[in-house]
Design a protein around this nucleic acid. Structure first.
Lengths: 136, 136
DNA sequence: GTGCAAATGCAACGACGTTGCAAATATGGG
DNA sequence: CCCATATTTGCAACGTCGTTGCATTTGCAC
């Protein structure tokens, strides 16, 4: 499916910036921060616009947000199994403490955990930390 | 062990602010943000000082840092099994998406995960998300 | 008590993220 | 193809979190 089709099929209008950002995310092997995107974009885009584009992708289910070791948001394009309502809880992540990179890993079966009385769990993820191959 | 003894035994000088902050952390059932601490403190303390106090606690192994759903740092006092060098990788966490609260949970046995070639894992945690009892 | 290292307070700064508003643009209907 | 309109973009301003540098104060060892 082309970039334009993907955007439209998720209810988003097609614009140059959205096309460029989606392309970037899909080519990347890791989650990209707002700053990464700004740097890598073929043509300058307003900072605020990028925040909004990334947010629209998350709302539409085209990308999902994940925090890096510093607490900054990064975005990765969703695999096809994601949809707009349940695309937060299928990933395991690896966070590099050196470069702050975030990588999506395979799905894993997660252990059961007892949560305190009255708590409701909507998502659970396994989060790994360490050094990625570039920072080893 | 008294607050003062705990501070001293971790190589920290005893000051009023440190005592107050450590007391707060140990009484709390959840991880506290810098802003939480600032608000709850018996007497006004400089913002920067609080950041440094919390950081010193983390460095000394008296508390550990954990990010909430918004990516803001929160601190929780360490259990006795923590020490200055390896107190990052023993917890499972629950993050409330409503109030951004973070709660430390019991230890769990984590599943093995295949990481890409060249990656080194130094810590792994199970992270749960949902609503805490106060926000249900 | 005295001296020194450490802790505190203050000012300034930077990154990240948000909001409001005006101008530009994508898209559906004629 | 053009028009009307809802969306998107750009810009300015703002807020929070977190850091750094420096002067002052304070804990603590002697």
């Amino acid at each position: 499916m082309s970039l334009d089709e993907q955007l439209r099929s998720h209810g988003l209008r097609v614009t140059g910036i959205r096309r460029d950002v989606l392309d970037l995310l899909q080519r990347s092997d890791r989650a990209l921060s707002h700053a990464d995107v700004e740097r890598a974009l073929p043509e300058r885009a307003d900072r605020v616009t990028l925040f909004r584009v990334l947010q629209s992708f998350e709302d539409a289910g085209l990308a999902h947000r994940v925090l890096d070791v510093q607490g900054t948001s990064r975005y990765a394009s969703c695999s096809t199994e994601c949809d707009a309502h349940a695309h937060h809880d299928v990933h395991a992540h690896f966070r590099c403490t050196a470069c702050s990179g975030v990588f999506c890993l395979e799905r894993v079966a997660l252990p059961e955990v007892n949560v305190p009385k009255g708590f409701t769990v909507t998502a659970s993820r396994l989060e790994l930390e360490g050094r990625c191959s570039s920072c080893a």
